[in-house]
């Protein structure tokens, strides 16, 4: 009996996609978070306005149900990010690779966020976005500016992306899915 019971338990975790995976998209204002969200959900580029608050969408990706929260990046809204940290499996941090002036601020916000207890177990995926634009920093340069190498005890990755062209997004997400599946087993 007991054996069967625990078996279904493991079985459920593996194959039932019932459990939703919560993912946050964070980053400074104008980094392209909302564009990435809808590119992922609908596969097309929508015109966006600065997000006052958040957008939330549910999408199926490779048999998994993803619950993706795109939180506004304006200074006034950043303090409220923490209200949405609990139960988060992964954070997607989006950086505007052309915005060299504010990359320090981005770095500060990122590390501040990762210190939060509720996010200790979450994976981190960084999109070095807007690669389609001239003068964009490369993924490596962004990684250095964000001091990603300092991160210990966390699965993380950085992917160069262009939400407009749809480049890099699936790669990033694939990596994220692998990590999450590993962790859930």
């Amino acid at each position: 009996m007991g054996q069967t019971f625990s078996f279904t338990n493991i079985f459920g975790k593996l194959f039932y996609t019932q459990k939703e995976i919560r993912i946050l998209i964070l980053g400074l204002d104008g980094a392209g978070k909302t564009t990435i969200l809808y590119r992922l959900q609908m596969g097309e580029v929508v015109t966006t306005k600065p997000t006052i608050g958040f957008n939330v969408e549910t999408l199926k990706y490779k048999n998994l149900t993803l619950n993706i929260w795109d939180l506004g990046g304006q200074t006034s809204i950043r303090p409220y990010w923490r209200c949405y940290y609990s139960n988060t499996a992964a954070v997607i941090f989006v950086v505007d690779s052309t915005d060299k002036d504010r990359i320090d601020i981005a770095s500060k916000e990122l590390h501040l966020m990762l210190k939060e207890e509720e996010l200790l177990d979450s994976a981190l995926l960084v999109f070095a976005n807007k690669q389609d634009q001239p003068g964009a920093l490369t993924a490596a340069e962004v990684s250095q500016a964000l001091n990603l190498t300092e991160l210990k005890d966390r699965s993380w990755s950085i992917v160069a992306s262009s939400a407009i062209k749809g480049e890099g997004l699936t790669e990033g997400l694939d990596w994220l899915m692998d990590v999450i599946k590993d962790e859930q087993l």
Binding site: T51, I52, G53, F54, N55, V56, G72, I77, Y80, C83
Partner: peptide, 12 residues
């Protein structure tokens, strides 16, 4: 406080 957080969702 901070009810503006749902603005975007409502507008959508």
């Amino acid at each position: 406080q901070d009810i503006l957080m749902v603005t975007s969702s409502i507008m959508k």
